[in-house]
Each structure stands twice: as C-alpha cells, then as structure tokens.
Design a binder for these strands. Structure first.
Lengths: 198, 198, 198, 198
DNA sequence: TCCTAACCGAGACGGTACGTCCCGTCTTTCA
DNA sequence: TGAAAGACGGGACGTACCGTCTCGGTTAGGA
C-alpha cells in the first residue's frame, strides 16, 4: 500500500518517510519504558521530534498508532516454516521464545490483547501472528505423513505454543527460557502423535 | 486477618459493606458492556449509586478499582482439584473453558494482562488464577503415580490449558468450545505420558 | 441570651463553654495566619482539639463560624465615648488606629466585608462596629454646642474615620500610623467646624 | 510591551481576543448576580461559551480570574483630573459615588479587599484605583496654591473619599447618594484649608 | 446509684469545585 | 500541500472541602 500511496502522484510537499518510522519507534520505546499510559500522543510527538498534528496526518487515532507500534514491534519478524511439521513445531517454539525475550513484547502484549479483543477490533490478530494461518495449512497438509493426529484443529499446535508463552509470562513475570520452550515442543509433538499400533 | 480487622473496633462511622460490592459490580458490568474506556469512575459511581469520593475511600486509583473488578470477575470461581492428576487436567480444561465463556472474562482479559504485567504489578496473577500453585503441587505429588512425566515443570499443564484458552480467544474472537477443551486435555495428557516400556 | 440558655434547664450533659472559645480562637488564628481559604472547618476543628461535628453543634455553617470569629476579633473592644464630640472624634481615631494595628484586623477584614455585603447578610455591621450608632447619637446631641456642623449626617465623622483606615490599609498594605490618625482627626474636626462669623 | 508582544510573531494558532473579554464579562456578571461563591469556573466557562481548560490557558487560578474581573469592573473607568485641587476633590467624590452606584462594585468589593490584602497580593491596589498616585502628585504640586494644607499626606483626600464610600456602603448596605458625596467633598476641602490669617 | 439524654471523637458519605492532563480538531505561519 | 506550534472544546482524573450521618464511648444531672 506504500507503493500505491507513492504512485498516486499527490500534489504539494511529499511526506517524509522517515517521519513515520520515527513516530513508530518513539511509540514503541515509550510503551516499553512506561506502558500504555505513558504513551501519550504528546509524548510520542515530542520524542519523535514532530508536531502532534503531524501524527494525526498519518494515523487517525491514538489507538491506531499504538496498534501500528504493536504490529511493528511484534509482527515484524516472520516465523520461517519448512513444511516439516515436527520441525516447524520445534522451530515455532524457539521463535516464539525469542520474540518474548525482547523487552518490547511484554510491553506491547497488553495493548495487543486490548486491541484484538476491542469491539470493533483495532488490531487484527493476523497482523501480529502473520504465520498462524500458514502454520495450520502446513499442519493440515503434513500431519498425517508425520504421524501426527490429523483430526485435531490444525491451529492447535500454534495456539498452544503462543498461549503457553503468554501464560508463562503472566504467571512468572518473565518469558519462558529456551529449555522450557524445547520441552514444550516435545510435549506437543508427543501429545499429537497418533498412537502406534501395539 | 479479617478477624483481626473486625475485632479491632475502628472508631467513626463504619463503612457500609454493601457499598464495596455495589461498586465492584458496577465496574464489572461497565467493563463487560463497554470495555475499560467506558469504565469511568464517574460512570461506576453513578451506576453504583454512590458518590465519586466514596469510591476513592476504598481504592486509591481507577486502576486499583479495575484490578479489583478483574479479580472479582475472574478469580471468583475456584477450580476444584481432586489429586488425581489426569482427572484434574480434564477438569481444569472444562473449568477454564466455562470461565472463558462468561462474557466478563474476555471483557476483563485486557485489563488483567495490563495489570499483571504493569510495573509495579497492579494485579497479582495468583489473585486471578488462585489454584495454579495448588495444581502444580498436586502434579508434583501425583504425576509419577499417574504415569505422567515427573521431570517437566509441574505448572506446565496448567499453563498450557490457560494459555491455549487465551490464544484461542485472541485468534478466533470467541472462546474455545467444550469439545475443543476436551481434545486439548487429551493432547496434554498424551504429551506428558511417559513412554511405556516396550 | 446566654442567661436564657442556662436558665432553660436542658437535660443531658451540658456543653463545655471552653469549647466555644477554643473553636473561635482557632478560627481567628487560622484566619490571621492563612486567610479565609486556610480556615477550613477541618483545620479549625483539629486546631481546637475538637471533632468537626462538635463545631456543627454550635454553628450551623462555616460562614456562621467565620462571622463569629470576625465579631470576636474586631468587635471585641468597645470604643469609649464621652459625649464631648471633639474628644470622641480624636479618641475614635486613636481607637480605630489601634484596632487596625492588631494583626487579626487586616486578616479578618475581607471576611467582614464579604459577610456584611452578602445577600442575605451573614454579619451585621452593628456587630463589628457596635458604637457607630451611639457615636451618631452623641454627635446629633452635641455637635452644635461643640461648634460643629449640625446639618451633616451625624454618622459622617465615624464613617470617615473607619473608611480612611480601611482605604489606607488597602493602599499601603499596612495600617495607619498614630500620627496619621491624629492628623485625620484634626482634618475632620476642622472640616466640620461651622465657619465662625467674620 | 503590547506592541512587542504583537510584533514578535508567536507561532501556532493565536488566541481569540474575544474569548478573554467574554470570560471576564461572564465572571463579572456572575459575581454581580450571585457573589463569589456563585462564580464557579465551570459556570464562568459555560456562560462565556468556552471550555474550562481555555480559561486556564489565560489565568492560572480561579483567584487570578476573579482578580482580573475585579480590575475590569472597577478599575475600568479612569477618574479625570484637572490639576485644580479643589475641583479634583469634588470631581473625585462624584466619580467615586457613581462607581459605587453600579451594581458590580459592591459585588466585587469583597473580592477586591481579599485580593489586595492576600499574602502574596493577588490584586494590586494600583490596578483598581489607578489614579490615586496621580491625585497625590497633583495635590503635592497644587495644594499650597489652592490654600490647602501642604503638610498633610497628599494621598489623604483621596483615601478619605474612597474610604468613606466603602464605610458608607458597609454601614448602610447601599452606596452614598450624590448629595452625601458633595457634602463629603466640602468637609474635606474645609478640613484641609489652611487657617486664613485673621 | 442508676438511667438517660446529650456531648464528643472519629470517620463514612453525597455532593461539588478545583486544577491538571490528555484527546482530537482547528487555525495560524512558514517552507 | 506538509509541517510546526499552539489554541480550543470536551471530558476524566484525583484531591479537597462542606454539611450530614452514624457509630462508640463518655459525662452530667434527675429519679
């Protein structure tokens, strides 16, 4: 959509692309440091070295900006998938574990939850977990061959991985360790494995 | 300590106990209907039939009140535990599924996440998931006898149950269905079962 | 009226007379130190070592209490009058000058003005300047004999004395000095003297 | 300095000049109708058709606004002075009498007294009686030529005029009549006249 | 000597104003 | 047109105070 915006020749002075990035970066930093309530539009604008009105030229609402910041902070990396289901579960565990270890993820999580559950939604869950759908497609396609239960909801493995990371963070105040993530992957794989005929 | 507080006769006019409940109830209702942003102190006080200042006599802050409402709405029910680990995992799945089906839980979830991750924390996770600790104790005590992996983090089963419920809600916008929760319990149990000697 | 209150035998525990005085004294002190806005009922009660409700047993309103304090602080002394008009003008100047020199008078003045001009009046001007009426009576009776203008408003001399003290305080932030008061009295007397036949 | 402020182009949207006036007018009207206690910021803002925050952009405090209103209501008119001392005393009496006859003056008086005597002062007396200083200068310059006592405090005539108007208002609840003011001027002039050589 | 009405301290409570802060919009000037 | 700056309407927040009320405990004086 950036391409669209650029190709449609607008008259007048063009927007500085760097400004967008500076604003989002400022928002992420403020969220990380002080949470949502510290992420005032005034504060964001000041930190980005930009006028408040300039922010409103790009995002219609504070919520929209915070949503953009959340996406940028969390949905930026893309989980690599291979099609080998077992390997993808293990890889997914490691990926999610690393994402949660970055300070911005716990900082953004409350806003993501709020935005996703808002009515109407302010953040699309797809935007923050862009590979969930693909993960399910690959599970559907490759589970049986890998000896995993093909009757189960194909999103289940992904949801367990992500959900457990969230629950662990909430319960302990810190993200899962690498070893815990690996163990989790093993439990999921074992749980989904179809019982071998005796 | 309630006993102490009650026995130590405080001077002055005593607080009306009903007021506490009315305020929390009003807060929960407003949260459920309109989310956090609709849960104005003015609105809560009005709905509870109480002066705004009266609310501040009991909770120092809007956040504190919302935290109390969240605890009341979600931590109110207590997961029954038997000591039979397999049965408790299945029961836990059903319990969590039912809790998430009540409208107040999705409504409160964003605030719970915010409050638990806030710095300093405004909500103790124990308060909203009071049986997690006991669940882990029972797992530690009974896993081996039940043929489940005793080397794994004893909280793991609980965290998977709760976390998956959260992830499912975020991904689909609606809570897990009963059948899904049952399937989840089976996967967890199978995943934790120690490989039987061939 | 105190006598009335005492003679009408009230049942129950009688009021401690000292409490009234302590409350008024506290009010005057607070007014003198911090002005009206510092004279909170809470502060007065605390300083008097008394419960807030106790104050309301004696005065129906904060305004009423402040009015009482004003009367006590300013109307306490009574201007001595002799009937010799010239002498009473000079004496009045000195008296007013001394009253304004006490710190409580400038402190109370704003409240007195407010209370006297309030609608309905909360303070009767008679209560703070109890001898104005008598002064006028004596002027009416003795002016001609003293060679002073009998056709003028008999309150005029008193009003000039008091008013000039107020204006001087407002303009300079400090009360009139003794010499200034004496000079003022001379000007008034000279101004009121009927022109001697050439 | 207004010129400076105007020439030094301030960035941003300029303040609407009409708003200042509307707020002050609303404050004066409310004071006149209901006294200080009716002059709520909310009421002022509402009557001026302005947001409460807008008022706070111009005056830091309710007191400051009320002070401004007092100045505007009372200090607005300027006593015309001629340099002819006798004539100026008579003119001053009439002027003050007319100022006190306007309903806003008695309404504002308590606040003026409070503000002038506050510590620190919130209203400068110069602002409400801007010609007192000039009056004294002219008296000092012209008293002797006019046959008036040059040794007396040159502010005295003015202070008597203003003070007597205040005292009269306090004592009677209504301002001096025109005839009374004229008589007062005559008494002052006679009182200040140096005794003619026999 | 006991009863009883009133006093008194303490603090809850409804109500309301204050002053601060933020949002989203607007109106200016300058590039 | 973009962008900086800041005014503006609107509204919530947390604090403070008023005047009323409701407790518990105390204290004088009459029965």
């Amino acid at each position: 959509m950036d391409a669209d915006a650029r190709s449609a020749r607008h008259p007048g002075r063009p927007r500085r692309a760097a400004t967008d990035a500076a604003i989002v970066r400022a928002a992420v930093e403020l969220m990380t440091k002080g949470g949502v309530q510290a992420t005032t539009l005034t504060a964001v604008a000041k930190r980005a070295g930009v006028a408040r009105a300039t922010v409103y030229l790009r995002w219609p609402t504070r919520s929209a900006l915070i949503g953009a910041a959340a996406r940028a902070a969390v949905g930026g990396q893309v989980l690599p998938l291979t099609g080998n289901v077992e390997q993808d579960i293990r890889g997914g565990a490691g990926f999610i574990q690393r994402v949660f270890e970055r300070a911005s993820t716990p900082a953004m999580l409350p806003e993501i939850v709020r935005g996703v559950l808002a009515n109407p939604p302010e953040i699309s869950f797809e935007a923050v977990a862009p590979r969930r759908r693909e993960f399910a497609r690959l599970y559907r396609a490759g589970a049986e061959a890998a000896g995993l239960d093909p009757t189960v909801d194909p999103h289940l493995a992904f949801d367990i991985l992500l959900g457990t990371a969230i629950a662990h963070l909430l319960a302990n105040g810190r993200p899962m360790a690498e070893a815990e993530a690996e163990k989790l992957a093993e439990v999921i794989i074992a749980g989904l494995r179809v019982p071998r005929p005796a």
